[in-house]
Design a protein around this nucleic acid. Structure first.
Lengths: 218, 218
DNA sequence: CCTAATTGGAACAACGATGTACCAGAAATG
DNA sequence: CATTTCTGGTACATCGTTGTTCCAATTAGG
């Protein structure tokens, strides 16, 4: 041990939140989100390149890959919560709140893909309860049940799943087939309405060779 | 070189379809499907172990990983086509055909997860046209349009996407939350009905603080 | 029972991804 | 302008996966 010198130089542990550092950190996280949205298994080299940053620097901010994904998860949770806040889940009917939520989520773009590929985010719904949104998604669904705007047989978990499944479908459609975003969003909302809305009058009285009921009961 | 002897011994190229071989091959493919359903990036060692087969043998049947996934894709296409055949897409109304298709697909179990994780299967719909099913999914959707059992604004691609999205959601729900399969299937069909069915009478006349129409048009 | 087919294990080479150490150049900060 | 901070490249060690080779043991089938 040398005396009480402030250590030679190689030391990344003190993390002063200097503007330069936070800017670089942000750039890396954004690039990482963009990359992992395209290819969930992008190598650190690719991510560093996408961030216009040396791989060394990347490791300086996120020593291990784990740390990077932790950072990304953090970003996602934050964005998702902000989106939920903007959707004002506590207002209006249950279904209208879900509409606004879809709208906000859909606007998150690339982040959607990341949410889907990251088990920590799709599996656990740990993020939706904590922050000060004041009204969780399941609360909203239950309000829709009382509302009459959401079928009471549709459990909150199922509704949530359908919402995400439709968002995913819409986003891929937009990414692969190049369907305009507005069109896709309209389809999502339309499908969501029907999928979780009250049963209404059973389909097709257009007189065809079979009716839906016989299938439903089978 | 020795004389005209039938080659020393090291030669796997001649592939006689002896019963033993086809049995082993089948076992490997089945184990691979089961493994990749759980973890899409399972190593060849894991897959070999799951198949109760040495890694050497695995390589003997599928020299490269590519070859294995090709084999799996082949299996999936076959299963999907058989399922579509069983669904008799050409019969009944459009929506009832979709119901039967969901039923058959859902019964494929683990294979569903593989289909989802394999880009070759979800991206391209190359498999649904070729074989002798006689009636493709898009044909069925179009019939539903004439039928009046499927909303004409729902493009075949979108309907197909929704169907898969709901299947995926249902399957994960069943796998993670342990919801009984029958319940899940009922939910899938119910949601599919609403999602792609004709608009019917707009939601909730249960007199609440907002109506669906204002949201839909926004 | 005897032969040929089939298998499984060990050992090895190659590869890419990850993580670390070091150092010289660039950039910011005073 | 001088100094601290920050960066980026090179080089290196490590690890897991993949693919190959060889051979001994097992198994199937006549």
């Amino acid at each position: 041990m040398t005396s009480a010198a402030p250590a030679p130089s190689a030391d990344t542990s003190p993390r002063p939140h200097t503007p330069v550092r936070s800017r670089t950190r942000k750039a890396i996280l954004e690039a990482a989100v963009a990359m992992l949205a395209t290819n969930p298994q992008a190598s650190l080299t690719e991510i560093a390149a996408a961030a216009a940053v040396g791989r060394t620097t990347l490791h300086r901010y996120f020593p291990e890959r784990t740390d990077l994904v932790a950072g990304i998860v953090e970003v996602c949770v934050e964005q998702l919560n902000q989106a939920a806040g903007r959707a004002r889940l506590a207002e209006g009917t249950g279904i209208s709140a879900l509409h606004r939520l879809c709208h906000e989520y859909f606007a998150l773009g690339d982040l959607l893909s990341v949410v889907f590929s990251e088990p920590q985010l799709s599996d656990e719904s740990s993020w939706q309860e904590d922050s000060g949104v004041g009204c969780s998604l399941s609360d909203t669904v239950r309000r829709g049940h009382s509302d009459g705007t959401i079928d009471s047989e549709m459990a909150p978990d199922w509704v949530e799943g359908v919402l995400w499944a439709l968002l995913y479908n819409g986003w891929s459609q937009q990414a692969k087939a190049g369907t305009p975003k507005l069109t896709v969003l309209r389809m999502i909302l339309r499908s969501l309405d029907g999928a979780v809305g009250p049963k209404a009058a059973l389909v097709g009285d257009s007189g065809m060779e079979g009716n839906g009921r016989s299938i439903l009961s089978s």
